Computed example of a mutant assay.
Amino acid sequence: MANFDTSMAVETIWRRQAAWSRAAVEAKRAITRARLTVAALTAGAAVCGTLANQLGQTQRGAGRALAVVAAAALLLVPVAARWAGRDAVHAWTRLRSVSEALKADAYRYLAGVAPFGGADRDAVLLGRLDALMGDAGDLVGRTLDAAPAARPLPAVSDVATYLTERLQRQVDGYYLPRARRMGRVAQRIRYAATALTVVAAGVSATVGVLGDNLGLTAWIGVAATVTTALVGYGSAQQYEHHQIEYARTADQLTRLRLCREAGQGWTDDDAFVAEAERIISLSNEGWMARVIEQDGAAQQ
């Protein structure tokens, strides 16, 4: 490690972080696709099964085809669910955890704060990399195919530039946009679920008043199944919780910055950066732990 100069040491960490970040993004996408597939297959099976029953008497060919599609969809549900199972979620959270740890070390090193304030900071940086890789060695293979685009080191050279390039960018470029996006998606899911519930109630009232000459009763169950699948997908993705967590973290970081700039505390550089990274780390660890906890409860 003594052969590494300053730029090579931190550039090594930055390249590794990019690879782990990319692997974490791909793992999350796979889980999201699997969950969306499960919801779509469940809803599709309900629709096709109901249509098959209703068309079975008049259009037997179409009815049989729809019955086959419904059966195939139900058979594929557990297959798709495996890609979003506990192991997949645990691997994703570990990939993300390593990525965030490497990023935090890179920014601390560039800012020149503890534990990278001494003459041995290259050795400390690379030693921490070794420790991380030792704990997550079983996931290294996932990063080999993750070929992120080359990117320059952050423009951080002291705590002042850390404040703008790390802290404020996290607030303006990540937490606030994510909070708004999570809020919009959660709202859309609520609206869709409410609309389906209203439709089911309307159909039920119509059947109660006019009878079931049109075979509408079966579609009440379909609406209930589709609503359950939709709400279940939204719950698994935890949009509402993420919205709250992102907004809360953005507020904490903003107040930390304002407090320092106003001279009301956090004047020590090491303590200020450590607190900023603590807030970011707690945010990541908090929602990742909640994801694992909820995923485990859902599979019991």
Rank of each mutant, 00 (worst) to 15 (best):
L167I: 12
L258V: 09
E165P: 10
V209M: 06
D268Y: 15
R60I: 10
A43I: 02
A9V: 08
L36P: 06
A65L: 04
G61F: 07
G215K: 01
A45T: 01
L95G: 03
L95F: 06
A88K: 12
L41G: 06
R260T: 14
Y174C: 07
A201E: 11
S7C: 13
A52S: 09
A40P: 05
R86D: 04
T50I: 06
T50Y: 05
H242N: 15
D158S: 04
D5S: 06
R151N: 14
T217R: 01
G127M: 04
E11A: 09
M133K: 11
V199P: 04
R33A: 11
Y175T: 07
A274P: 01
L110M: 03
E277I: 08
A39K: 00
D130S: 04
G211K: 00
A146S: 14
A30S: 08
L153I: 05
A43H: 01
R33V: 11
V89N: 05
W266G: 13
P148F: 05
F4D: 08
Q243G: 07
Y174A: 07
Q168I: 12
T228N: 14
I13L: 12
A271S: 10
H90N: 12
V113Y: 00
Q168M: 13
A70T: 05
A192K: 08
A18I: 12
P152T: 12
Q252G: 03
I189R: 07
D172E: 11
Y107Q: 12
L102H: 00
V226P: 00
H242K: 13
Y162C: 03
A43W: 00
R33F: 11
V207T: 08
S204G: 14
D270N: 14
K28Y: 07
T197K: 11
T267P: 15
G215R: 02
L41D: 06
A271Q: 11
R169I: 14
